[in-house]
Write a protein that binds this DNA or RNA. Structure first.
Lengths: 184, 184
DNA sequence: AGTTTAGTTCATATTGAATTGAAAGTTACC
DNA sequence: GGTAACTTTCAATTCAATATGAACTAAACT
């Protein structure tokens, strides 16, 4: 149960009406909106909410945040935060910043969204495209034998699939190049 | 439990080793591969397996298939088939073909993958882009007030997000145009 | 009218992914 | 080397998305 100024990691809604707790309302609201932004975007890509929320809260803070601060702001269990941070570090979405006087690590966004997106494209899409290619090969080798006309129908359909597949493959580099004309 | 020559709608695996049942093994194998292809592709896009499987089995048949045939070939419940077919009809992925001598409807792929893909792009991506845009507006209006330097950091981050967002928006039409240079 | 065939609906069951929380690990400091 | 602060691990749980199947509707034959 949210105890105070936790950012709701919930649905898409306006997320309004948080109990202000002890932190300034405007800041809490800003954080909520940011978390919402990333949560929405993430589930389009199939990334777990908690991970997106952690990224969002870190992104919304001008100062690097500690594990404890993230926990305090996000009503998410320690376990999830630990795992979420691991994922985010692995993909280079956040980086650790040590502060000499402190024990705990702190995290900031390792602002290279390009990396994240490229990585995503490569992993999910490229993989699917590759396995699809393999399957298509198998398919065209294993056309069952049927009446000529029927076989022809299937052959045509396969060609059609092929063409699409090729197009999808061709699109990837275009997309990447496009995204490379980047900002910051 | 699959009773005979059902196409397994399972994981990505080779799907091999089906009990041949009473239909020719080569056909069954071909169907399985086709279903596999679409199931894989679909779950990349977040489409339920059963829907993809139905499309696959229909796509793999040179002849339009009846509800009963789909059921017989796919080890999927009537309920799912009914719903799956509904979805597929709605998005124009399959069309009904009436055969005068028969009571039951039959289904063929309404081969316009372009439609499907475009539709997908528009619905999921465009929607997210639009809601994202709205959120970004809110965010920049509600920058909390903090020390100047901090506010500046946040403002920079927002600009950065903005830029990405714009780029994503710009990419959509490019992708569409690209896909429009189509085959068949 | 009644029976069979075809298909749909929807409450419930299944399943797999995400999340939790408590116990176990680390590391720094006394 | 003890203990407190911090973090990770992982078995159990929760939850949302899909799938199921029995009950129902509609149309087609007799």
């Amino acid at each position: 149960m949210p105890r105070s100024s936790h950012v709701a990691v919930e649905p898409s809604a306006a997320t309004g009406l948080e109990v202000p707790g002890d932190r300034p309302a405007d800041i809490v609201a800003f954080e909520a909106a940011m978390v919402g932004f990333f949560v929405d975007a993430a589930d389009l890509l199939g990334v777990p909410k908690s991970v997106a929320a952690i990224y969002g809260i870190v992104f919304a803070s001008p100062e690097a945040l500690s594990f404890a601060e993230i926990e305090a702001r996000l009503d998410i269990s320690k376990g999830s935060i630990s795992q979420g941070l691991r994922v985010l570090r692995e993909v280079g979405a956040v980086k650790e910043v040590s502060v000499k006087t402190e024990r705990a690590e702190r995290f900031t966004p390792d602002v290279e969204l390009r990396k994240l997106i490229t990585r995503f494209l490569e992993q999910r899409l490229q993989r699917q495209l590759d396995s699809g290619k393999a399957r298509l090969t198998v398919l065209s080798r294993s056309l069952p034998d049927l009446k000529a006309a029927e076989t022809e129908t299937l052959r045509t359909r396969l060609k059609y699939l092929q063409a699409w597949h090729d197009k999808a493959r061709a699109l990837m580099p275009v997309a990447k190049a496009f995204l490379k004309l980047t900002p910051a």
